[in-house]
Design a protein around this nucleic acid. Sequence first.
DNA 1: CGAGGGTTTGAAGTGCATCAAATAGTGTGG
DNA 2: CCACACTATTTGATGCACTTCAAACCCTCG
Lengths: 239, 239
Amino acid sequence: MTNKLVNTIQQFKLFKHCSGSFHQSLASQARILDLQKGKLLFIHESEAERFYIILNGWVKLFRETLDGAQAIIDILPANHIFGETAIFQDNKHSYSAEIVEQANIISLPLDLLKSEIESNPKLAISMMSSMAQCRRHQSQELENRTFKNAPQRIGCFLLRLIDPDQSGSVSIHLPYDKTLVASRLGMQPETFSRALNQLKKQINMNVNGSTLKINNVTDLINYTCSSCSSEFPCHELRS
Amino acid sequence: MTNKLVNTIQQFKLFKHCSGSFHQSLASQARILDLQKGKLLFIHESEAERFYIILNGWVKLFRETLDGAQAIIDILPANHIFGETAIFQDNKHSYSAEIVEQANIISLPLDLLKSEIESNPKLAISMMSSMAQCRRHQSQELENRTFKNAPQRIGCFLLRLIDPDQSGSVSIHLPYDKTLVASRLGMQPETFSRALNQLKKQINMNVNGSTLKINNVTDLINYTCSSCSSEFPCHELRS
DNA sequence: CGAGGGTTTGAAGTGCATCAAATAGTGTGG
DNA sequence: CCACACTATTTGATGCACTTCAAACCCTCG
């Protein structure tokens, strides 16, 4: 049991350069969580004691504005780590986290991570690389918001769900509610619905509920990525 | 001369926990640049050998999209550091940098910073804190784009130019061209002009060219920050 | 079957972009 | 110091993308 966990933990790029003993002490203090849709993991500004690794499922990170709207920071899939940045923010979470699709999550103590970062430069470097990547991702997101219209943003979202070296015809299943995809992309559900229809017409795509079939990925790329500052596969897999 | 430089360098929060000898070797390899508006410091994807500290003036960080538009990452004032993240991106710059207002800039070798980060955990931690702060800043920027209209985004921009504990009546001079402010805020120059007029009517403000006089900062805060996820002074000073 | 969420569709409104043109402001050479 | 050229900014008119509100539809699940 714990062995399997150590194994899982050491596979993460972030922990690649850490000692076995660190992996073990992480594992020994790990909790495995099985969480249902809707579960709030922690809230913005709360005291942070643990960070999390997603084994599967989807987790929404968000904040709430004074007038009640939700600002979605990101919606993370398996193999992503979150909550760890509280280390640099006074041990306060800078967002809330909610399960949006049933998830298995490992929770680990922050203090262990913190002390290791302070003593292991290689881990520190890994950590910085992952933060740098996150930053690039964020600035791309802002760029998308500035230059892409609704159908293109949806296209970009879909491309991220596709294995980058896939080509030709692909079938995609939306990983969570359309309403949520919409707000992740900064648009209204109605707009999402209409924009998806436009996209369907622009490129050759079939829509069946949450299942989309794209007959030619290249068409999607051409349609979507023309207003980007980087060429297609512009997204890297974090982990 | 070099002493003064060492002094300047050691005052940066980022280098606070570094040894005097590190400050000195930085200073010994420093170049002081006096750059005019329009000067391109480096371009996206180019090989990165140095990073930069702004002593005064303004620097625009941006990328260009395939169809020629500029995506502005940020426009930085004095005391900001940039170009340093290339360390984590294969020594390639992930944006271009251009002077937008006459600037004095210190250029420093990246390899020195890199090796120090690898051997000095305290510097690593400072670096991560600054990256974390940048991330928060970016996600706030995205939030602004999502929830605020044009006049509110201008308001938010203005508030960042004001000393946080100032209240009552304040006079502001726009630090660079209105056209540039507009694209920094993700809007057209025409929209900026009209939105500034709206803002002028909403709160009590006088506009005279690039000089604005806000008669009551509280009014501006109320108008601007109602759709934010954090209370007013939401911006921290980096350095 | 009926309740309730998620999703789609329609109609109308709004904010911003775009295009075109006027105006203000700045720096230049005479 | 003025006239000119050039850029930055403003203003007006129009169009489009997205939002909003309302209602229908669809699907799932008790």
